[in-house]
Simulated scan of single mutants.
Amino acid sequence: MLLDLIPHIINGLALGLLFALLALGFMLIIGVMEVINLAHGSLFALGAYVALAMMAPDGGLPFAFMEPYYALPAVPRYLIALVVGPLVVGLVGMGLELCLRRTYGSDPLYGLLLTFGAALVLEETIREIWGSSEYALPIPRGISGGFIAGDLIWSTYRIYAAVFAAGLIGVLWLFLNKTPYGAVIKAGAHDSEMVRALGYNLTRLRLLVFGFGAALAGIAGIVMAPIWGIRPVVGVDAVIPAFVIIVLGGVGSFWGAVSAGIMVGLVVALTAAFLTDWSLLSMYLLLLAVVTFRSRGLAGKSSVLEA
């Protein structure tokens, strides 16, 4: 019985780590900008669509100059998509931050409404370019398919996704805690006016952090695309778990968000194995159970990026 659960546990870990990666980008923006970015899910979807355009000739960019590019093997194209996708999404995020500047210092509702409108604009733009059909992201043969180990069939891609997400989360933690740039970002999340008083350009910091958080959403969208599929409304499916994870883990903790992401992924995967109709509801029940006894989440702290 336990052996039968192992593939579901692996699936849950992969899903949870990807959820955590998405939620950490969300937390970066909330911490430094003090804005709840409702367009985060649409940026997640945009990353998946940009990767689709980089991987498939019929993926939405039928430009003649792209034909030699599509002749490249699948592995280089996939690696290029992993770089270009987050860069494009990061630039879009930076453009959104420029629009948000007029709302700083005003009622937070203005920023909330602006990002909600941006989410609608991004979703409709995706529909105009790619249509409303669902796509599957082509991936290199080396990370597709499955293999048999211990009389069980394992998904190669899900193991790759779990390792990739775990590695990226580790790199992000090192960046935030072991580099001077990460220290400035953490300080901006704790006290933005103090950062300004120390001579740092707060306007530039906000721009770069928003772009960085958006890029994390984009790369999460690319890696999760083969698991969830690609469709215009996939961003809604992503942003809701991100909200749940932030509240569940505690708005003040990096590792709280990672732990909450893994918990949500495991709960959803294990519930889907036995009660498919309850799989999405299970994460809300988990949230309710935790915040009933710990209102600040698992590891809530005063600073959004405090480890």
Rank of each mutant, 00 (worst) to 15 (best):
A269R: 08
I230K: 04
I185S: 04
Y110S: 10
A225D: 11
A187Q: 11
S279Y: 10
A165L: 14
L52D: 10
G31S: 14
M55D: 09
I80Y: 03
S155G: 11
I126M: 12
Y70C: 10
I126W: 00
F164H: 01
A56S: 15
F63H: 14
I148A: 11
L18S: 13
W278G: 09
T271Y: 00
Y69R: 09
S279A: 15
Y200H: 11
G182T: 06
R127A: 15
L46V: 15
S259R: 03
H190Y: 09
A149Y: 05
R101E: 05
F212H: 03
A162N: 02
F116E: 06
A23V: 09
E193N: 08
R158V: 07
V163F: 13
F293L: 12
A23W: 00
N11W: 05
A56R: 10
D237A: 14
M27G: 11
L205W: 01
L202R: 08
G95V: 14
G41V: 10
G170A: 15
I10A: 12
Y181Q: 15
F164W: 02
E97T: 05
A81C: 10
Y157A: 12
P73R: 09
Y70A: 13
Y284K: 02
L305D: 03
L98M: 12
L176W: 02
E193I: 15
G300P: 03
R158A: 07
D237T: 11
L298F: 05
G90K: 01
M224Q: 09
L114C: 09
R204D: 05
A238L: 04
K186S: 15
M66A: 13
L122T: 14
V32Y: 00
I10R: 06
F293A: 13
P86V: 15
L2S: 06
L208T: 11
A189F: 00
A166G: 12
L17M: 11
A118L: 12
A48I: 08
A238N: 08
E34K: 14
I10C: 07
L15D: 08
R77H: 04
G252S: 10
P76H: 02
R127T: 14
L205Y: 02
R206C: 12
L17P: 01
P232F: 03
I126Q: 08
R204H: 11
G117N: 11
V234E: 07
